[in-house]
């Protein structure tokens, strides 16, 4: 076993009633890389994410994070261990401000659990300046006081990334970070992911192939729950099976 594999799955399988969403997937994500998970709709990418973070219970198989079996760990514990996910549908706290959104994550990271209902929230103000740094890093400084629900879609995704970053995760799982974005938003988020990936590992589900080709070191192609191909962009994009899966038979 090489030490540089930070996240690994063995025989990961998820069956829903009579339907296998993820079938015997062996994924190996190397430390410090950007690893993309691509595939047609229904290939099992998001299910994979849900299994990795234990938002779903795998039917079979196991998940190793830094060499430890985390298959049965509750999702909050997995997050605390440094494996933090984002969601396909923008996951912000809609009626809190941008600053508060980021601060919730910082609060978890810096204070640990917060059961202290007798303490004034003023103590949280010491988290304002690190929160502002993160907000600045994703280009949201002019929206600091804005209620999250009022942000444009692309900005919400940026906020989500800032919130995820606040936990300083070792592995970031990004579920379609550029889905539904305008062209300029896509460029901004791509640059952002590139920038934040410096000291960490990123595993992302992404449909936009130009984003995938720009960012990722390794690509795993899923189809009908199984791994179809794996490698860098150049080799994967020339793989005839992949071309067929994306464009249908008769092309290429």
């Amino acid at each position: 076993m090489s030490d540089d594999v930070i996240l690994e799955t063995r025989g990961l399988t998820k069956e829903f009633k009579g339907f296998v969403a993820v079938n015997n997937v062996a994924l190996r994500v190397r430390r410090g890389t950007i690893h993309a998970l691509i595939g047609p709709n229904g290939a099992g990418k998001t299910t994979c994410f849900n299994l990795l973070t234990h938002f779903l219970e795998p039917t079979r198989g196991s998940i190793f994070y830094k060499g430890n079996d985390i298959t049965g760990s509750p999702p909050a514990r997995i997050a605390r261990a440094g494996l933090v996910r984002s969601f396909q549908i923008s996951a912000v706290f809609p009626h809190l401000t941008v600053l508060e959104n980021v601060r919730i994550a910082l609060q978890r990271k810096k204070r640990g659990p917060s059961f202290d209902f007798w303490v004034s929230e003023k103590t949280l103000e010491q988290l304002n300046s690190p929160a502002r740094e993160l907000i600045h890093a994703v280009g949201l400084e002019e929206f600091e006081g804005t209620i999250a629900v009022e942000l444009p879609y692309g900005r919400k995704r940026a906020l989500e990334i800032a919130t995820t970053l606040a936990l300083d995760p070792e592995v970031m799982l990004l579920d379609e970070p550029t889905a539904g974005m305008t062209h300029s938003d896509v460029e901004r988020i791509t640059a952002l992911v590139k920038r934040v990936s410096a000291n960490r590992t990123v595993l992302m589900v992404e449909h936009n192939l130009s984003v995938v080709s720009t960012l990722s070191n390794t690509i795993t192609v899923l189809q009908r729950g199984e791994i179809l191909a794996e490698g860098d962009y150049a080799s994967v994009s020339k793989n005839p099976q992949v071309v067929e899966a994306y464009l249908g038979a008769g092309h290429g």
Binding site: R80, F87, R103, A105, P113, D116, V119
Partner: peptide
């Protein structure tokens, strides 16, 4: 208006997200 209250509000707003940030909701 406490650190606890802030977490509580985040759970009301989006519980899966609060879980994914490491809170035992």
């Amino acid at each position: 208006h406490s650190p606890f209250g802030q977490v509580l509000k985040s759970i009301r707003e989006n519980e899966p997200r609060a879980v994914s940030l490491g809170y035992d909701t």
